[in-house]
Design a binder for these strands. Structure first.
Lengths: 156, 156
DNA sequence: TGACAGATTCTGCATTTGCTGAATATACAA
DNA sequence: TTGTATATTCAGCAAATGCAGAATCTGTCA
């Protein structure tokens, strides 16, 4: 059976990308961004928009948007090729970067709840909010602790 | 200035609910579900669908759907009132319950990557996947460790 | 400068989503 | 069994989203 498309991916690779993408969808990613994420993880060197579009079999404009999204979230890095207008992408080197947004959110929620709880609740509800604020704070701390060791060596 | 609506919430409470909801939106919640989440946190006793709809100023069908959503995610608990068809909701007593879904996801991703990495990548990409699987696993463990202490006392 | 290679933005479309108000279903009480 | 209070589902609508392909913009090279 010939390869009908222009994709250079092996079938196991496609399966891997799609399965990983399915899991990532639960995190609110679009399907193209999720697939691109998995795709970039498999690549050894930087890849161009045309390669990504061909391999993932989606339009270039679509993959362009997805790449920008991943870049904004810290999941991909954009490289300029010297002496060319061509744009290349590689997987982000800090897997925890996208999660910092989440931990920030947890911190904000914890702070908000702690600051307002006495104004908006009393009795059992106030006790619950106190507990909730502590929970968010502890979770944030635990996540940050787990993320930290994976920060890439600072010599960028 | 009179209260033009049927809501029993104080203005600080409304503010709190809306601010918290804004933060929760980033986690993919719908606005009504997010507001209902905050609302339930403020309540001392169980509340009916009619109360929720009136206080949040949304339709009953909408709040019904949102309540089911929160219940499915473990953010709310549904109580039957003895001798009545009325349905009541309270905030979930385990703040970490909704996160177990996330940690499960992390575990699945870690397992998927670890199992397939040798089939789909080589060289630097394979090393990156190995690191990624470990990262997911460590993050999952850290989150579970932080969540565990908040599990409510087993005496239901 | 002109021509080209490439990224980006734009336009249009189909799908999905969240919401409301109406219709329907269901449990309880008499 | 019938009436009633309540939850749930349905139908329709408006807004947002994701996508493809076309059009446009922008460096780079001759």
């Amino acid at each position: 059976m010939q390869n009908l498309s222009n994709s250079n991916l092996s079938q196991p690779q496609r399966h891997f990308i799609d399965e990983l993408a399915m899991l990532l969808l639960s995190w609110g990613m679009t399907i193209t961004a999720a697939r691109l994420y998995g795709y970039l993880q498999l690549q050894i060197g930087p890849v161009s928009l045309d390669e990504m579009a061909a391999d993932l079999e989606v339009s270039k404009s679509n993959v362009c948007a997805a790449a920008k999204l991943l870049e904004a979230h810290g999941n991909a890095r954009r490289l300029g090729e010297r002496g060319s207008k061509r744009v290349l992408y590689v997987a982000g080197d800090d897997p925890g970067l996208p999660l910092r947004r989440q931990t920030d959110l947890l911190g904000m929620m914890s702070a908000l709840i702690a600051a307002r709880k006495d104004d908006v609740a009393e009795g059992a509800a106030r006790a619950r909010l106190t507990r909730l604020a502590a929970f968010h704070r502890d979770l944030k701390d635990a996540m940050e602790g787990a993320i930290l060791p994976y920060k890439p060596k600072s010599g960028s």
